[in-house]
Design a protein around this nucleic acid. Structure first.
Lengths: 238, 238
DNA sequence: CAACCCTTGTTGACACTGTCAAGATAGGCT
DNA sequence: AGCCTATCTTGACAGTGTCAACAAGGGTTG
């Protein structure tokens, strides 16, 4: 009930992500001006900074505003509510994560299986290097309005950002199947297994994972590699 | 870091003499009696009820107190702060989850591999039937004071509750290895893979999982079964 | 039995949060 | 010029977690 305010006070123009095709100057951020010029983007980056420092739960609209140097209500002209800020920050983080996966993919010389392993390790590394952001992008309260589902209908922006990651993996799996090194079958299922394994492991590393760190596997990335080899052995064409 | 309130007010009686001439209005609530008798347990169950109804974020100390029929500050005599209530509720939920895993295990006739599959499906089922509780028990902000690590030192109560689940799985894996149906190797690693897969899948089902539900796999439990068979094929002794 | 004290409950208060309402300002439009 | 609208401001309010002080009652001790 606490977040049931459909009354949008946001001007329609600012709903379009990243005001494209504007003739405004938006040169240097211009600190002392009444109209900020690029506040929305700055709020998002401020939010990410705060999440990094104090965790997703430590994020406060008023803190974000303060960090951006505006009054505590200025954000409401760019985001409907706190959830919308979280959502925008999440999308930014998801994109960063997908980018790092993609870069890793392009740097990997081996076959599709090697690529799957490398991307998995990269995913875990991202989680370890940006734990707060990793937790942020997995928050269930992010809007995912279960709306357009089957037919590529308009999904939520968060959903769209995630689908980029899925696409990267799907392509790798399909490529592996075409090359004959990954056995046939629903690629969706393989991606799903990859995703669950990697994601579950990253979560575990961030949450309750003292035991592995203490006994024999000093580096979670090594464990991640082993786990992924496990998976890869299962889908390899024999 | 964010929740560092070492100032415990719990057992410290507020021994202040002060004005003895006041007469307070007699117990407004509390079902008649001033001293509840079993408030702590009732607070925990009230908290779980609220989490079920409004999600972990919807839980409020004042709501918990109201649901239990006491004043908004009564919980502070049983829990240090809100986090402690969450923690107690989590432990209760984790125990419930472990119990259902154990029951499922005892009802399974097959070998260790079958048991691992059945427990995995059961885990996903628990997540689907109690999504709020499932999310609750995975909250990273639950106390896990990274303290006693290697030598079975006193860990957090939450950690202890989780370790029961791990023990169930470890036993199954070891049994399978003794029976020769699970290949040799670090059982820890196998449990880890099982855990990551099942946990990641359950998370995915609860969060962003419209696609599978719409295309070809109507029931997530079927997908879970397929995934677990995948895993089991990887660890089977050949 | 009375005196006492500790645990458990109560009310009151405070700072902080998300959000609404209404006023102020600036840049672009007619 | 004068106005329009998006943007930013101050002000207010209900909820929240938590601290402080006070009250009731059961148990312990004389």
């Amino acid at each position: 009930m606490s977040r049931s305010t459909p009354k949008s006070r946001i001007p329609v123009s600012s709903r379009n992500a990243a005001g494209a095709g504007r003739t405004a100057k938006l040169g240097p951020a211009a600190a002392g001006r009444y109209h900020h010029g690029n506040l929305r983007a700055e709020l998002v980056s401020a939010a990410i900074k705060i999440v990094d420092r104090r965790g997703p739960d430590g994020l406060t609209i008023r803190l974000v505003a303060e960090q951006a140097g505006v009054s505590h209500n200025a954000p409401y002209h760019h985001f409907r509510d706190k959830g919308a800020i979280l959502e925008a920050a999440s999308i930014s983080c998801i994109n960063a994560m997908v980018d790092s996966l993609r870069r890793r993919l392009h740097r990997t010389r081996g076959n599709a299986l090697d690529q799957l392993i490398c991307m998995g390790v990269e995913f875990v590394r991202f989680a370890m290097e940006h734990p707060a952001e990793f937790r942020l992008i997995h928050r269930p309260e992010l809007r995912n309005p279960r709306g357009g589902c089957c037919g590529d209908a308009p999904t939520s922006p968060v959903e769209a950002a995630w689908s980029n990651a899925r696409q990267l993996l799907m392509e790798a799996v399909r490529r592996g199947q075409q090359d004959g090194i990954i056995r046939c079958g629903d690629p969706d299922m393989i991606v799903l297994a990859w995703w669950c394994l990697v994601n579950g492991f990253a979560n575990k590393v961030l949450n309750f994972f003292d035991d592995k760190r203490c006994t024999n596997a000093p580096d979670p990335l090594v464990s991640a590699h082993a786990l992924l080899e496990h998976l890869v052995n299962g889908i390899r064409n024999k």
